[in-house]
């Protein structure tokens, strides 16, 4: 177990290093400096700025100094808003984004699994078709369209929910709904197909042959096995929720990380882009790692110290 975790940790560090390096060189491959666009700055000011941001040093020096700052978790100042450091933005935006992400994840998991299980048990019945129609619709509508429609219907036309900012539970309803629908649909479809597969397994027949009630068969024997494949996609799902937050935070004017990220893309604020990308990647990679560990705990057949077991 410990060896497996160590191995995974090392792989995580390598992936992260890869991302940091990739990000760094991609950003520096852009022709010209970020300062000679838009604002007409004098040559002296520009040189000053470049030296402040280390842009006048050779590339490898910049690379190492950047690596150093990443390791010490200091992403430096923003170029477009010099009064703010990237760290400021992250520490201000992260708690909000985290809250939105977690609430969404929980809503998506609970509703998705419920929908999927019900659909599987009523296979080919009305409820199955209804649930799967909802699920396919959820996958089919881009979240920015859904968010806009929700605002139009439930905030403008019929003002039930407030929009913009992130201050009360009522403010959370629409963004969460807009963000959770897609992942919920994915979970529901996966749960359904996996549940249906599990229900045809021999051990389910054994359980029936014991005279167990359908409820016990579903909850004791089927559900846990059916959820294993669902667990494996949680990592990628977290990723899609995360990128979804860019959209949702911008539309609902939620002061999270995603808003800063989108703004930094629009203004080409490279330190912010780099910092947030690295930060997001780190979160995602940690999520994937946690999912792997969770999978190992849920499935007794996986021996975590034997990597080939999966």
């Amino acid at each position: 177990m410990l060896r497996y975790i160590m191995k995974r940790l090392i792989a995580m560090v390598i992936t992260l290093w890869f991302i940091v390096t990739l990000t760094f060189f991609l950003m520096h491959s852009i022709p010209g400096s970020p300062f000679n666009e838009e604002r007409a700055t004098s040559e002296a000011v520009q040189r000053n700025l470049e030296s402040f941001y280390n842009l006048d040093k050779p590339l490898y020096v910049q690379y190492f100094s950047y690596m150093k700052s990443v390791v010490t978790l200091d992403f430096g100042p923003s170029i477009k808003k010099p009064s703010q450091s990237v760290n400021d933005m992250l520490s201000r935006g992260f708690p909000v984004s985290f809250e939105l992400g977690i609430v969404t994840l929980v809503v998506a998991i609970i509703s998705g699994i419920t929908l999927g299980v019900i659909a599987a048990l009523r296979h080919n019945g009305f409820i199955d078709y209804l649930a799967m129609t909802i699920a396919v619709l959820g996958i089919s509508i881009p979240n920015f369209v859904l968010a806009t429609m929700l605002i139009q219907q439930l905030a403008v036309n019929v003002p039930i929910f407030p929009v913009a900012t992130w201050s009360s539970p009522m403010h959370m309803v629409l963004p969460t709904l807009a963000l959770a629908t897609g992942p919920m649909a994915i979970i529901a479809r996966l749960t359904r197909s996996s549940m249906m597969e599990v229900l045809t397994q021999d051990y389910i027949r054994t359980a029936r042959a014991k005279g167990l009630s359908p409820v016990k068969i579903v909850f004791r024997h089927a559900l846990r096995n059916a959820l294993l494949p669902v667990v494996t996609v949680l990592g990628t799902l977290a990723a899609s929720i995360l990128t979804g937050t860019f959209v949702i935070e911008k539309i609902f004017a939620i002061p999270g990380m995603g808003k800063y990220f989108v703004e930094s893309i629009n203004t080409r604020d490279y330190p912010v882009i780099m910092g947030t990308t690295v930060f997001y990647s780190a979160i995602l990679i940690i999520m994937l790692f946690l999912v792997d560990i969770a999978y190992g705990i849920l499935d007794p057949r996986i021996k975590l110290h034997k990597k080939e077991g999966s």
């Binding site: 397994q201 021999d202 051990y203 027949r205 054994t206 359980a207 029936r208 042959a209 014991k210 005279g211 167990l212 016990k216 004791r220 024997h221 846990r224 096995n225 294993l228 849920l298 499935d299 007794p300 057949r301």
Partner: peptide, 30 residues
């Protein structure tokens, strides 16, 4: 009647047991 009066054993012992429950739990539940 199933399991109490009439019981059944299936062909493949490799798949007849639930992989995620201990054999004890599977025995006792019946």
């Amino acid at each position: 009647i199933r399991g109490a009066d009439i019981s059944m054993i299936f062909q493949d012992p490799m798949t007849a047991l639930n992989p995620t429950l201990t054999i004890g739990k599977q025995l006792v539940e019946g």
